[in-house]
């Protein structure tokens, strides 16, 4: 872990200290250390297989790290903490699933409780409020399965907001969206962070859609992480040290590409050839 900036603060929403995660003999995360403050928009960037999902699981309390500590709002993480709002990557629903947008969102309020939901005015008001916050009132009564990817993503964000979290975790929210919807989602999340003072940790494998809005970047590669502003972290020597081999940062037309060896690693670190034999005719 390389600490490029360390703003010591007691108001941290999320702090990770010296986190190590090991799956038997394989070190998946090592010496991860960073903190996020209220209202901060942080991008968790890294190629596939870098340990982003593992890190999310640690913060959600689904996985206990082998070493180190993780605290949310000053308290150790626990499974199902209402202070942490989680937005999954996407939902898989059939077009004719009998579930309206507001039903999906309402599950964020009391989906973990037993019994069937009873209609109540306060419940409805709370749901309407978050639907308004993500600009989803127009399609509140539409079937979820028939909404676009961007609209579904907004609902998932609304759902995560219902428990009034201090930290919002978004797992690859942009990976299945077209450029325009991705841009809308980023703008929405950024305004939520600013207006409501909620800290945001957004996971992505491509940093470019987030360049204008990120306060900080946590770059994860090969189980190592660096944190700081984009300019501080996305540099040849910093990333080369993370990856463990020489990579080069190229800036073209306001976009950043990370290139290492023959592969563009910012989107894909994996050596695809390793799996090509299983593809048969897929890659001819």
């Amino acid at each position: 872990m390389m600490e490029i900036t360390q703003r010591g603060s007691h108001g941290d929403v999320l702090t990770l200290k010296d986190v190590h995660v090991q799956f038997h003999n394989r070190l998946v995360l090592q010496h991860i250390e960073f903190a996020i403050q209220p209202g901060e928009f942080v991008g968790l960037i890294g190629p596939n297989g870098a340990g982003k999902t593992t890190l999310l699981k640690v913060i959600l309390g689904l996985l206990t790290p082998n070493r180190g500590s993780v605290t949310v709002d000053g308290l150790p993480v626990k499974h199902g903490n209402p202070l942490v709002g989680y937005v999954p990557q996407k939902i898989h629903l059939e077009p004719d699933t009998p579930l309206r947008a507001r039903d999906l969102v309402a599950l964020g309020l009391d989906g973990h409780r037993w019994g069937i939901p009873l209609p109540s005015r306060s419940r409805r008001e709370k749901v309407d409020e978050v639907l308004r916050a993500v600009d989803a009132l127009d399609f509140a009564d539409a079937p979820v399965g028939r909404l676009s990817g961007g609209e579904q993503q907004r609902l998932l964000i609304a759902q995560a907001l219902l428990t009034q979290p201090k930290l919002l975790l978004l797992d690859e929210p942009l990976s299945n969206l077209d450029i325009r919807s991705a841009h809308e989602v980023v703008r929405l999340v950024s305004s939520i962070a600013q207006n409501q003072g909620i800290a945001v940790l957004l996971v992505a494998h491509d940093m470019n859609p987030l360049l204008g809005v990120m306060d900080k970047i946590v770059y994860l590669a090969a189980g190592n992480a660096a944190i700081g502003t984009v300019d501080e972290v996305v540099q040849n020597e910093v990333l080369s040290r993370l990856y463990g081999y020489d990579v080069e940062v190229i800036r073209v037309r306001g976009r950043i590409l990370v290139v290492g060896g023959n592969n563009e690693v910012s989107t894909d670190l994996l050596q695809p050839t390793q799996h090509l034999d299983s593809m048969g005719g897929a890659t001819d």
Partner: peptide, 11 residues
């Protein structure tokens, strides 16, 4: 599964 798909997409 995701790797398979990625490999194809990459190519």
């Amino acid at each position: 599964e995701s790797r398979r798909k990625e490999a194809i997409r990459h190519e």
